[in-house]
């Protein structure tokens, strides 16, 4: 994968011919490590309770909420039969506690409290899976903001 094929640069529309190519190339290590982080968070070897398809659906859901539709589409294609959960309005009775936590952590971060974690634990989510879920949502918060910022820099936002 070349630098400009990484999800962040590709989704924000940057190419080797872009005016910002020099600035982004000087931080190539950061964009390559960001791609490694996507791999670790979306497609880990040890998935815990959340398989690759569900992770992709949740990532798409967070990206749609943030208004990053190209990124959301990128993840939705990997969501398999979980793709319905990519719709921010979708609900699944078996995963309600997970969806509620993902939506709140992504979008009302400041309001997350101890009860949100104890609620997941009471629903049977292990401590390791709580951390995995946080990393997924937290990485997406980073990725959508870098993409949004790069699009603004190029004057192609909106």
């Amino acid at each position: 994968m070349t630098l400009f094929d990484t999800t962040i640069l590709n989704t924000s529309g940057l190419t080797p011919d872009s005016r910002l190519a020099a600035a982004t190339s000087s931080r190539a290590n950061i964009f390559n490590m960001s791609q490694a982080a996507e791999q670790a968070v979306l497609r880990p070897e040890d998935c815990g309770a959340f398989g690759h398809d569900l992770r992709a659906a949740l990532a798409a859901r967070v990206a749609y909420h943030a208004g990053e539709h190209a990124l959301a589409d990128h993840y939705a294609t990997a969501a398999g039969d979980k793709v319905a959960l990519a719709d921010p309005g979708a609900y699944d009775s078996g995963l309600g506690h997970v969806l509620t936590f993902v939506d709140k952590t992504a979008n009302q971060t400041r309001d997350v409290a101890a009860e949100d974690i104890s609620g997941l634990q009471a629903a049977g989510v292990s401590d390791a899976d709580v951390v995995r879920l946080c990393e997924l949502v937290a990485f997406l918060a980073y990725q959508v903001r870098v993409i949004a910022g790069l699009r603004l820099m190029q004057g192609t936002a909106g």
Binding site: V112, R145, L150
Partner: peptide, 27 residues
């Protein structure tokens, strides 16, 4: 400069990540 703006985008976004770990997983 472009290089400075890029670093600002990255550092602010990085804390979108870090805050969702530190603030969510502990007190």
């Amino acid at each position: 400069s472009d290089a400075e703006i890029l670093d600002l985008i990255l550092s602010a976004a990085l804390f979108g990540w870090a805050n969702r770990l530190m603030h969510v997983l502990g007190d």
